[in-house]
Design a protein around this nucleic acid. Structure first.
Lengths: 219, 219
DNA sequence: CACTGTACGGAACTGGCGTTCCGTTTCAAG
DNA sequence: CTTGAAACGGAACGCCAGTTCCGTACAGTG
């Protein structure tokens, strides 16, 4: 898709990787406000070279963030199979939060403030995996039963969005996360307000009902 | 301080107010990225007029955010005297969070990403009041004993920083806040990591020790 | 009502961004 | 090695931000 002439020229491929790595670093530090001149300098290439692989700045952002989401989705998918889903969820939360300390752009995009199409698909994949993890942790009785996958993503985004999260030295995000985790425990949970009915949740709900109806008719 | 010639000219004072109101709206919507041309147009004045009262963009930001902190500090101060400190704290959290839904800049500055000197003073005042409220709620046995005022501010900043917080319709921030609140309850709290030793906390600690020492010598 | 200096608005300046152009360099197929 | 196309770097373009300048208009005093 990004390689029109079957195989890229060797130098082009090498520069594409350099640009991606530099972009990850620059956007990680400065968020979406990171500039292409910065990226170019860090990659050791000219600005025009960036445009060879990424027609616009948004495309570059998309590539970087999509990669992050892919990594998160993979991590969550692994966690679903873990023996203790609750512990696995905690690991995911901790790892993601700690990664965000040096990665501003992920938090900025994790909610849905920026609606980059390519990111959206990967975000959905992440939510699917996360929902499985959530349900397993709920069945085990550790996670409060009234949260859904979207909530977790929102909480993580908030963790990253808090500007104070950026002071590596203070580690205040660890306390922040600890409070969140206590709020997520099943023990002593007070019911949440009803979640908004997004298209996503609507689809899942109808699928559930259809399934129940079908098995009811059969039975 | 901002009025060199004892009394400002009437039109100047009027425009100053207009600019402040417009700036509050623009920065509220666009965060610190709001532009002075936008502010000027909304206020119905020329850009140069802004500079008459605020020598630089940062000064204008400072004025807006300081005002917000002042309002927050006042609200908290009232809450300290309330019969149920826990309920009062919840009110403060809810009101602040809901205000932040239409006010991006406050959340951006609430942590300490931007170190505007004038804001700092008001932020300290806010923290002082908040610490009193926190301690009262802890003495009542409702609030977990291991949080400090700074934590609350960080949590609030995260609530606002979450990009999803901005979708008024979804109201996802209410669920986010509910999880936080459950995490703040004394019942079933798991101990937090130790808070970082900021200068603020150091000062409070030494003052406490000095007091104890003095009363010990007297007694 | 005249007058003076303050405050006004819009044009102009500076700098940095995203993006495009173009002459030059470098890869890789024959 | 030759050679044509692909990819390069850096200069150039348009735009919009923050900030400053300057001729004009008006508020407040006598």
């Amino acid at each position: 898709m990004a390689t029109a002439p079957r195989t890229m020229r060797a130098d082009a491929a090498r520069n594409r990787e350099r640009v991606l790595a530099a972009a990850a670093a620059v956007f990680g530090q400065h968020g979406v406000d990171g500039s292409l001149p910065q990226v170019a300098e860090r990659a050791g290439v000219g600005v025009a070279t960036i445009y060879r692989s990424f027609p616009t700045k948004v495309d570059l952002l998309e590539a970087v963030v999509t990669e992050r989401f892919r990594a998160l989705a993979d991590r969550i998918t692994l966690a679903v199979a873990a023996p203790s889903p609750w512990e696995a969820l905690l690991d995911v939360l901790h790892a993601t939060a700690s990664a965000q300390v040096s990665d501003r752009v992920f938090g900025q995009v994790m909610g849905e403030a920026f609606n980059l199409p390519a990111v959206h698909a990967e975000r959905e994949r992440t939510l699917d995996a996360l929902q499985q993890l959530v349900e397993r942790a709920q069945q085990a009785g550790d996670l409060r039963p009234d949260v859904v996958a979207e909530d977790i993503l929102v909480l993580l985004a908030g963790l990253a969005g808090s500007p104070t999260a950026l002071d590596r030295r203070g580690r205040s995000w660890e306390r922040h996360l600890a409070v969140l985790v206590d709020g997520l425990r099943a023990e002593g949970a007070h019911p949440l307000p009803r979640p908004p009915l997004t298209r996503r949740r609507l689809e899942r709900l109808t699928a559930e009902l259809r399934g129940a109806l079908a098995s009811c008719r059969r039975g």
